[in-house]
Simulated scan of single mutants.
Amino acid sequence: MSFAQTIQNAWNRQAKWLILLRPLSWLYSAGFQINKRLYTLGLKKTYHAPVPIMVIGNITVGGSGKTPLLIGLVNYLQQKGVRVGVISRGYGAEGPFPALVAVNSLPDQVGDEPCLIVQSTHVPMAVGPDRQASIELLLSSYALDLIISDDGLQHWALARQIEWIVLDAHRGLGNQRMLPEGFLRESKKRLNTGTVIEHGLNPKTSLNMHLEPGQPYLLCPATETHEPFNANASFYAVVGIGFPQRFYNTLESLGIHNFQCHEFPDHHDYELTDIDFDDLNPVITTEKDAVKLLPLLKQYPEYPRQIWVVPVEAVMSDACYIRLEQQLAQLGVCFS
């Protein structure tokens, strides 16, 4: 098991040995505050884009449901006639940067989440660690009313007008400690400065969302197939996301109970050996992992094992849409 997986498991269990990392957390917190202060004082430059910027992020490490929420928002804004674009760091991608993302872009070039976002929405999107360069590339290619930043809540070099902070109600804030003792990127006080979207099935606030799973489909690089899905089969649950337990809970909700868990680090670069097992029982995985696995199937078209993909859709409360319309109206971005 990798160190990343070990510490992720320790965070989820709130293991007592994490207290040994507290001095590192103090150093991280001090460095974070100093860096933020430098931007506040104007000693570091902040970029102000010519169009409104909306950041969707979180204060925790690991999955919070941010990407499905972003996809849902983009689809909604497109339906309302808002010319929206998206930027992302393109974590784990090779570049070159900045780069526009197309429906046929490869995950190793632009990142797995950008591939999923564009394949799901066909939204104009640019990726790269330099957010300013990505925005300028996007605006040189498209006329846009709004740009959404996928993550980047702690990227103080980018000015923003709207912040949506996704908070997973199931994980919560763990031991409420900063990295690496806990999984907080910044203090929980940050939740007082943005629009908090509670992610959970039994929300306590009006601004909430949950993920609704769809019918699993067969990942096939060449042709469409309508082979029926058998929830009673024995699966290998292969997952490389920030919070794998959410995927296992999703499988259970779909009546899929017979599966072996095979976890990889978030944004894992899959190899064929990762999905080689002693039998030909099918693999079941997430859409985010599927964008990494599909190129492998294209390289090895004779691969005999079925790979099933579970799609999810973010279902937002009415209050989320009302808040979004209010925030955009204040910025002069109106729905048609």
Rank of each mutant, 00 (worst) to 15 (best):
residue 105 S to N: 04
residue 311 P to K: 12
residue 126 A to T: 08
residue 87 I to H: 03
residue 254 L to R: 11
residue 119 Q to I: 04
residue 32 F to Q: 13
residue 191 L to W: 13
residue 198 E to I: 10
residue 46 T to S: 13
residue 218 L to G: 14
residue 27 L to I: 13
residue 294 L to Q: 12
residue 177 R to L: 08
residue 330 Q to P: 00
residue 273 T to A: 15
residue 30 A to Q: 04
residue 102 A to W: 00
residue 274 D to L: 08
residue 2 S to E: 13
residue 133 A to F: 02
residue 149 S to E: 01
residue 93 A to H: 03
residue 282 P to M: 15
residue 119 Q to C: 01
residue 68 P to W: 01
residue 44 K to H: 07
residue 211 L to Q: 11
residue 120 S to Y: 01
residue 257 H to N: 13
residue 310 V to A: 15
residue 231 A to D: 06
residue 85 G to A: 12
residue 255 G to W: 00
residue 162 I to E: 10
residue 84 V to E: 01
residue 325 E to D: 08
residue 125 M to P: 03
residue 314 A to V: 00
residue 50 P to D: 06
residue 124 P to D: 06
residue 157 A to N: 10
residue 162 I to Y: 14
residue 98 P to C: 09
residue 38 L to G: 14
residue 16 K to M: 10
residue 84 V to A: 03
residue 325 E to N: 04
residue 183 F to Q: 06
residue 97 F to D: 08
residue 157 A to H: 10
residue 282 P to K: 04
residue 164 W to T: 09
residue 180 P to F: 05
residue 189 K to C: 02
residue 143 A to T: 12
residue 110 V to D: 04
residue 57 G to M: 08
residue 326 Q to R: 12
residue 183 F to K: 09
residue 268 H to Y: 13
residue 287 E to N: 09
residue 307 I to M: 05
residue 23 P to L: 09
residue 237 A to C: 11
residue 148 I to D: 01
residue 128 G to A: 03
residue 187 S to V: 04
residue 130 D to N: 08
residue 307 I to T: 13
residue 73 L to H: 00
residue 55 V to L: 06
residue 289 D to M: 02
residue 143 A to V: 12
residue 297 L to A: 13
residue 287 E to Q: 10
residue 59 I to Q: 09
residue 208 N to R: 08
residue 223 T to E: 11
residue 228 P to H: 09
residue 211 L to F: 12
residue 56 I to G: 11
residue 221 P to T: 12
residue 124 P to E: 07
residue 294 L to Y: 02
residue 237 A to T: 08
residue 217 Y to K: 14
residue 336 S to P: 06
residue 60 T to M: 09
residue 317 S to N: 06
residue 202 N to M: 09
residue 49 A to K: 02
residue 237 A to Q: 11
residue 309 V to W: 01
residue 270 Y to F: 10
residue 246 R to N: 02
residue 96 P to A: 09
residue 21 L to K: 05
residue 263 E to S: 14
residue 304 P to C: 02
residue 303 Y to E: 05
residue 105 S to M: 04
residue 102 A to N: 07
residue 313 E to C: 05
residue 96 P to F: 00
residue 308 W to R: 07
residue 105 S to R: 03
